[in-house]
Amino acid sequence: MQDISLHLLDIIENSVRAEAKLVKIRIINDASENLLRLIIEDDGIGMDAATLDEAQNPFYTSKVERVKKVGLGIPLFKQNAELSGGEFNITSEPGYGTVLRADFELDHIDRMPLGNLKDTLLGSIIGHQEVDYAINLIFRERGMEQTFHFDAAAIKEELGEIPLTYPDVIEYIEQSLIEGIQNTNMEDV
């Protein structure tokens, strides 16, 4: 993976596969703390302690259709966070869901860029209409705070039976995300 938002996409797909109905994504860019933090929380089926342990091992995958039981998604994300002076942890409760947190040192030379956050979010929101997303982007610098909140459920309620793949809706969601990402300085992080 070349950037953090590709890891985010991979994690969202894990949540969807875990039958999540709501995925909460929070990204914090805190210049004063030199911190870039991602928190992804879902209400999926969760994992027990043994599975959680295995999920962080590159020689494990939950994908039953796979012959080779190797899953690199989570181990690579963890490695990339730790390589940039950050931390990575997952907590999970069977039947309730999973919370993943990845911290990166903002100015660390080995930190990968955040990358194309907009395309990750746009594809996931429209490609999984059955899932609701609550997205919060938070930018902090010298006591100032800029935030952006995106609530997929509110948009779906407003649209009624109109699918998110309707051309004008794609454009609407894309424009909202572009504005939010710009306002919270998450474009070139």
């Binding site: 259709e65 796979r66 996931s124 793949t165």
Partner: peptide, 28 residues
């Protein structure tokens, strides 16, 4: 991700109102 994005762009640009795009996991 770029493949998904291009489908969304084309749907929007060509005003295709009768197709649905979804994402799915690994297929082997």
């Amino acid at each position: 991700r770029e493949v998904m994005k291009t489908f969304l762009e084309e749907i929007s640009a060509r005003n295709l109102t009768d197709v649905l795009v979804t994402q799915t996991g690994e297929k082997g």
